[in-house]
Nucleic acid binder design. Structure first.
Lengths: 332, 332
DNA sequence: CTGAAAGCGCTAACAT
DNA sequence: ATGTTAGCGCTTTCAG
């Protein structure tokens, strides 16, 4: 592998000059530049980013800790983040935290050891006390994505509360009184906020929450399926269901279908999180759609700003969620 | 940020000793080890992987060039690869090639510049002549994933031909004579192989291919939708359709649905690629499911072997594809 | 406009 | 069993 020194020798200049033509970091005579460029061309030289990082103190690398690459929502998020980052000349290192503090800590440690210039994390439950402080302790710029946490860092997520409230209100408007809710993973802000939205809708209409109607799907499709099946098999089943994220929706649909119940005939359904193919499900899903592209792009934007040294007060951005009215609610 | 030197000074030893206790790379007195460990604990020292990489010549990093993070199939693949890699102590750098040689080249250049220890790529069309030689030229271990290419490198993908043939044969068994086929992106091996499977099924039954029935969906949902709509609006439309990948399937379903046709009543459908929620679509999809987990894990395994210096002849592994018989074919 | 030299933080001979 | 010393390949003062 040719090094900068090789190129310099061939071009008959010093390594420092080669470095400067490569980075445009100081004026060099047109003619010498040409010689250097010729030497680079001739040798097929490719600058060593590792050495550059060590000498320069910046790795041009950003770490992302995410919880479930298999979930299409997170896939879209990674995609959006990767694009924005690569546009800005950074590369993305991804780690999967499985939404668990222990693996999250491992991921973050590895990222920090690699001296990423910045970090984007979708914090697992309990992250505030374990891994987040570790990051801020190193001074590495950090932005939280998808979920919030009680720390001084930029955070960007979808608007959860109002969107979830609209979902439940829609059901209420249709006359439903007993509404089951399938919650996601406990301890993360999105779950809490969406549930609060549900609650707000209920109390807004003077309806008291019935604990029997709140299910913990734990953001796991199988768990959700089991829980929903149990609830819907009971004698006193609800007339409508609200699912709080896409994994919950899949589980819910499977459960309802396996019971031979029809949607919205036997039970109405509204969902937080949309799919590209939501209208191919039977029935078409009425859903609140997060704007992943904007969420990802915004997170990167905030991060880049921090990396440039901006030390304004942390921002908490909520990206609007769109309501897609289709058939599963029963009024398509 | 504390360095190894700092730790050494505090522990009253040399940097080299610290390095050795950290890496277990030579025997050190139990007592000195303890002192070093105490110093590490005290300072919160975290070893600098960048410096380590420069000095050691290995970055413990693997690059992945993939074509569409938004596609759940690739999301699953990235997930599988990430897990296998992290189990082996490597981190994953991902780049999205958008299935286009130009961006692929950009991704690969960036990865090579970062001196990844190995590389996994889902080659875009035309990659053999552009970016793949560049990789092998550097001596970086390489394994191709999802698609093959005519170069001397390990490659792992799903079994395409036989699986696709079975799909078409199933339709043939049901009496269909005019079968439309929606192909994916041209120029990549998976598209070619799957189409060959279709062809083999046809010729096996003495049926000649009708060019009007082959559609190029270009692995793009919208294109597929448009093409399918055109074909199905014609007077002489086929009685069955085979979709060659999941993006094509979405487009096909949208098209058929928008025409008010029913599946399998008006047209039967079988698909290459499965979804976790395939049986939630209307109708449930009869599909050939790739085993992403095995594909990803196998690719990593082959890569690690190469990185260890194995120079056996390149392998080409095809992971079996499972046939999921559901309703869209018309015989559920 | 360009070169020399120090140094980024670590590893790995080579000594002792 | 541990320390010394050279680098790894680049960036960046500091000189000229």
């Amino acid at each position: 592998m040719t090094t900068m020194g090789d190129v310099a020798r061939i071009a008959g200049v010093s390594a420092s000059t080669v470095s400067h033509v490569l980075n445009g970091t100081r004026k060099v005579n047109a003619e010498t530049r040409l010689r250097v460029e010729a030497a680079i061309e001739e040798t097929g030289y490719r600058s060593n980013v590792v050495a550059r990082a060590l000498a320069g103190g910046r790795t041009h690398t950003v770490g992302l800790s995410i919880s479930a690459l298999t979930n299409p929502y997170f896939g879209g998020l990674v995609h959006a983040v990767e694009r924005a980052l690569s546009d800005a000349g950074y590369v993305l290192i991804v780690g999967d935290s499985h939404d668990e503090v222990d693996s999250e800590k491992r991921v973050v440690d590895s990222l920090l050891g690699r001296r990423v210039d910045g970090m984007i994390v979708a914090p697992a439950a309990g992250s505030e006390r374990a891994t987040l402080p570790e990051i801020t302790g190193t001074g590495t710029p950090l932005v939280l994505i998808d979920r919030g946490a009680d720390i001084a860092a930029d955070q960007v997520s979808a608007e959860n509360l109002d969107a979830a409230r609209s979902l439940t209100e829609h059901l209420l408007d249709l006359g439903h009184q007993r509404i089951g809710v399938v919650r996601g993973k406990p301890g993360i802000s999105s779950t809490t906020e969406r549930f609060d939205g549900h609650l707000a809708a209920l109390t807004g209409r003077g309806i008291e929450l019935d604990d029997d109607l709140v299910l913990d799907g734990d953001s796991n499709t199988d768990t959700a399926e089991r829980e929903v099946r149990a609830l819907m098999s009971s004698t006193d089943r609800p007339s409508a269901l609200v699912s709080m994220n896409n994994a919950m929706t899949i589980g819910t649909l499977k459960a309802v279908r396996s019971l031979g119940l029809s949607i919205p005939g036997d039970v109405a359904l509204v969902c937080y999180d949309d799919f590209e193919w939501s209208d191919l499900f039977e029935p078409k899903l009425t859903a609140a759609a997060q704007d992943v592209d904007t969420i990802g792009a915004t997170a990167v934007e905030l991060l880049l700003r921090r990396m440039r040294g901006d030390d304004a007060a942390p921002q908490r951005i909520q990206v609007p969620t769109a309501f897609h009215h289709r058939n599963s609610c029963g009024c398509g």
